[in-house]
Simulated scan of single mutants.
Amino acid sequence: MAEPQAVISRPAGATVFLVATVTPGHEDTVRGLLEDVSGLRRSVSFRAPDGELGCVVGIGSAAWDRLFSGPRPQELHPFVELAGRRHRAPSTPGDLLFHLRARRTDLCFELARLIMERLDGAVTVVDEVHGFKYFDERDLLGFVDGTENPEGQEAVDAVLVGAEDPAFAGGSYVIVQKYLHDLRTWNALPSEEQERVIGRTKLANTELPDDVKPADSHVALNTVTDEDGDERKIVRENMPFGSPGGNEFGTFFIGYARTPEVTEQMLRNMFLGDGRAPHDRILDFSTAITGCLFHVPAAGFLDDLPAAPGEREADEPAADLPAAGGERAPADGSLGIGSLKGART
């Protein structure tokens, strides 16, 4: 399997999420940045090797065919909007995702600055979120986030594309959503009621027993199983963000998976219900305002991109080109100098 990007990582202390659209006619600039992004990351992380700076790059469906020739990832498609009876998951623009994370904010900031400097005029940033670690890996609702992430080989199997799409083995899919929280209403709930909304205890971070956990709790609706009853997992790298002066408090959801279908099923359960519950009750306090789906190619794909649309691959033989006057050049590679063809006698 090709070497993956760093989609499986321990929780970060700081993150920057950049979602951008590509300006028509500037695809070559974007391709140049994609091939150099690993070098930019190394140039920043070399100055602080203990900072664990990482950068994951995702590419959206609408941009893929503008940037690359050849095959597409089999399951890459636009984010599917969901409209439930009370809540909606919107689909919003996004051609590129840059997920920057580190133990320190300055490293994420510097790499984001260098990336945007290279992309100046070539993209429009449609969403920029600076996330931070909140106490012991909690979100702004006060609950530990990411507890059920798989580990070790289980995480690899859950996140990385394998033999089902060999051209993109080692890649992954990622869905991102930006949620804003109504903290005033949330904090007015007693802790016991908050626990029923989430499906876990707030202090000890343990899952509520099945006979106590409500069917519309977040945990209940986000537990997805296959036909054999085995739970299907994703890796969440969610981060809280906020602006107290602007009264904005939220969670940036980011879920990596081997197939987007797993995360999409979770979202269908949340917004459309699953027959037992009309929707995830957490949505009564958290509103999704963005939604994008990206493919995260293997690291080697970015270091050596396939040809751009309309370009020949490097090892593809060139077709005979017409010579001056509209005639095709001789197959022997000469320019036809000294040829008697067409000469007067």
Rank of each mutant, 00 (worst) to 15 (best):
P166Y: 08
P71D: 12
H77G: 12
G13P: 00
D274T: 03
R31I: 04
R85E: 10
E261V: 12
F135Y: 13
F143V: 06
G146Y: 03
P166Q: 04
H87Y: 01
R196G: 01
N205V: 06
I198P: 03
V262E: 03
V125I: 15
P330T: 02
M116W: 04
T105E: 13
R118N: 12
P90M: 08
H295T: 06
E195T: 08
D315S: 11
L76Y: 02
D182R: 00
P244F: 12
D303K: 15
V296Q: 06
A102H: 04
G255L: 07
F132R: 11
F143E: 08
A331V: 14
E237C: 11
L18A: 07
R184F: 11
G300M: 09
L141W: 04
K133R: 14
S334Y: 02
R232Q: 15
V80G: 10
A89Q: 06
N205H: 13
A331H: 13
L335V: 05
G326P: 05
S286V: 00
N247T: 11
E227P: 02
G242W: 01
R31V: 03
N238R: 02
T147E: 07
Q177T: 00
L183D: 09
F135V: 13
G58Q: 02
P49H: 09
S172A: 13
P49C: 08
A122C: 05
H87R: 00
G291C: 08
G336Y: 05
R276N: 12
A298F: 08
K202A: 10
P150V: 02
G326L: 03
V212L: 11
D280K: 00
R10D: 12
P297I: 03
K133D: 13
A48E: 14
D36M: 10
L82V: 09
S38G: 14
D280S: 00
D139E: 14
K341W: 03
V296H: 01
L283D: 01
R41K: 15
K341C: 07
R47N: 09
G325E: 00
T259Y: 00
N149H: 06
H295A: 15
F79V: 11
E237M: 09
A20H: 09
N187S: 11
V125W: 07
R66K: 15
E164D: 11
L96W: 07
D211E: 14
P240G: 03
F249S: 11
P322K: 03
G338C: 08
F135K: 10
W64Q: 07
G250Y: 12
P330D: 05
I254C: 13
L114G: 08
H26Y: 09
G131V: 02
A48K: 14
L180H: 11
W64G: 03
R312M: 09
D226K: 01
G273L: 05
F68L: 04
D332E: 08
D157T: 08
G131A: 01
F241R: 01
G338E: 12
F46E: 13
A308P: 04
K213L: 04
P317L: 07
A48D: 15
G94N: 05
V212Q: 14
G51E: 10
G229Y: 07
G146L: 03
G142V: 03
A48Y: 12
R72Q: 10
L283V: 00
K213N: 09
R31K: 04
I289A: 01
Q177W: 02
G162N: 09
V156S: 08
D211L: 12
R184Q: 13
D139C: 02
E261R: 15
P166S: 06
